[in-house]
């Protein structure tokens, strides 16, 4: 199914909303950096900060499924052997 609206219309109606969201992201990253001038991030926070950096790279790509890729980036891995690890016997 394709969206009935064309790209021009979507850009026009979403521009201010996306602009505001990007500004929030930019200001948050600035805020983190300012706080890090006095002390560096702990390991757990640093790995989260790194994920945010990875996420912005996905946004810059031309992939058709950027939302799905972000979801995957923020997800724990699936291990098909989970049943064995739990001691379950698969049918």
């Amino acid at each position: 199914m394709t969206n009935e609206r064309n790209g021009d219309a979507i850009v026009a109606e979403s521009f201010l909303d996306v602009r505001a969201k990007l500004l929030e992201v930019a200001a948050t990253l600035d805020r983190i950096d300012r706080a890090c001038q006095s002390e560096t991030l702990q390991e757990a926070a640093q790995s989260k900060r790194d994920l945010l950096g990875e996420a912005t790279k996905i946004l810059l790509s031309d992939a058709p499924n950027r939302a799905e890729q972000l979801q995957q980036l923020f997800s724990r891995e699936y291990d098909a052997d989970w049943r064995e690890q739990f001691g379950f016997t698969a049918n």
Partner: peptide, 20 residues
């Protein structure tokens, strides 16, 4: 939710599909 969703959904689908 969140980082557990993908792994958990796959595990759930595994268990559902195991039960004929």
């Amino acid at each position: 939710h969140l980082e557990d969703k993908y792994q958990g959904t796959r595990m759930i689908l595994d268990m559902l599909c195991d039960d004929q």
